[in-house]
Amino acid sequence: MNLLNRLPAWVAQHVVALRTVLLLTVITGLAYPLALTAVAQVPGLRHAAEGSRVTGTDGRTAGSSLIGQSFQDAKGRPLPQYFQPRPSHAGDGYDASASGAGNLGPESVVDTLPLNGRPDSGRQSLLTQVCARSKAVGALEHVDGARPFCTADGVGAVLGVYRADGTSGAVTRVVSLNQACPARPFIARYHGVTVRCATPGADYGRAVAVPVRGDAPAHPRVPADAVTASASGLDPQISPAYAALQVPRVARERGMAAADVRRLVAHCTTGRALGFLGAPAVDVVELNLALDRTHPVKGTR
């Protein structure tokens, strides 16, 4: 205190401030979190505090029931004997050290087409991501993967329309923006003008992007969560509808009765909390683990 009294007031003020910051660091920055870590060791809290680990069929930790996993082979193809989770933007997919979302908006409809020989140079719009996933899931589950605003080849059905006076006037030229040549455009003519495929690298910035809904049913067979990525990229759950869609395939691959698979699905389904909070969901990690335990498939762990 004596030293403080001899310092100029504004310096003394900052010394007090620094001492307070350091003191708060000790109390709130060390004592509090460490005490809570110690409390978290008591039985009942410990399982969650350690990360809700699940044990694999070999008795070793096989991940966390809270963190989604990838069920694909090394080439990125879905392993058919497993329930598939949602698409993921965490790293290369379900990378638990790189959580994150795709962050594309609801009007992200025009792709940057990859240049010839450089497949990484393009960037898919959110619409094309949705269309491509819907087509792939439809093919895997043997159902129609068609969706509104999607082409049959699984990209966004978006026309670049050139008009005589910029944004108005007669249509002069039409390009299917997301279909790279030599693809056949999803419709042949628009307002009497022949629709062309798109040339990668060409600038269609002056065209007006017109999404075309097409005649796909308003309620597609492939559920919404199967074609959209989660916010964390680590969502371990899928909707009951998407689980139901996958039951026949998994039953077939594992030689199980569909009813037995459905029973396991029901076992891994959580309803709405308190009856009305959140949404019903099926934990894919726990479900696939239960399948491996009860009906192992040769060649998997």
């Binding site: 969560d225 959209t228 989660s230 899928i238 959140g278 949404a279 969901a281």
Partner: peptide, 9 residues
């Protein structure tokens, strides 16, 4: 649904 978690809806 894009960018939302299943459990929250």
């Amino acid at each position: 649904y894009e960018g939302t978690e299943t459990r929250f809806g």
